[in-house]
């Protein structure tokens, strides 16, 4: 048995350096050609895809962040708006209440004023009426007295009356 196994393969196979040369050349050419025409383009595509996916993920993350930010902003805005609205309601209600009270107070004041005025008027009128009535009653009683006196005081009556007064004056 030969020392190196290659020696046992037969005389024709011994040290076929030509074959090695052909193999090396064709392998290196194949390596170059495949690298240029196949591996590089495929690698480029894969890298591109990786980049696209990376970008997409980045974009998605950004969008998510934006969405969260917008949501927060909107919520804050909504809350603010709600509080503003409730504040406005509160304010307007207070104002309305105040106005209402004011109006009522004014109305009350005016009403009492009117009432007192009216009462005063009434008193005044009453007094005036009473005075007038008194005056008229006095006039009337005088008138009536005149009339009664004129009608009743006949000649006999006058004689009687004179007699009476004279008797009374004699008695005394």
């Amino acid at each position: 048995m030969d020392l190196i196994i290659l020696g046992a393969a037969g005389e024709t196979m011994a040290t076929a350096f030509g074959t090695s040369l052909v193999l090396l050349v064709s392998f290196l050419v194949l390596l170059g050609a495949l690298s240029y025409f196949v591996w590089n383009p495929v690698k480029k595509i894969m890298d591109d895809r990786e980049k696209v996916i990376h970008d997409d993920i980045q974009n998605a993350e950004n969008s998510k962040k934006d969405a969260a930010r917008l949501r927060d902003e909107n919520e804050a805005l909504l809350k603010q708006t709600q509080s503003e609205i409730s504040e406005m309601f509160e304010n307007s209600r207070k104002q309305a209440n105040a106005e209402q009270e004011l109006i009522i107070k004014e109305a009350n004041a005016r009403a009492s004023h009117l009432i007192t005025e009216a009462k005063a008027d009434i008193e005044r009128e009453k007094e005036r009426a009473m005075r007038e009535i008194n005056d008229q009653v006095a006039d009337l009683s005088v008138l009536i007295a005149e009339k009664v006196i004129q009608k009743e005081l006949t000649a006999t009556d006058q004689q009687e009356l004179v007699k009476k007064y004279l008797q009374e004056a004699g008695d005394r």
Partner: peptide, 9 residues
């Protein structure tokens, strides 16, 4: 001697 195995090549 440079031997080429033609079939293999």
């Amino acid at each position: 001697p440079i031997v080429f195995d033609l079939a293999t090549c």
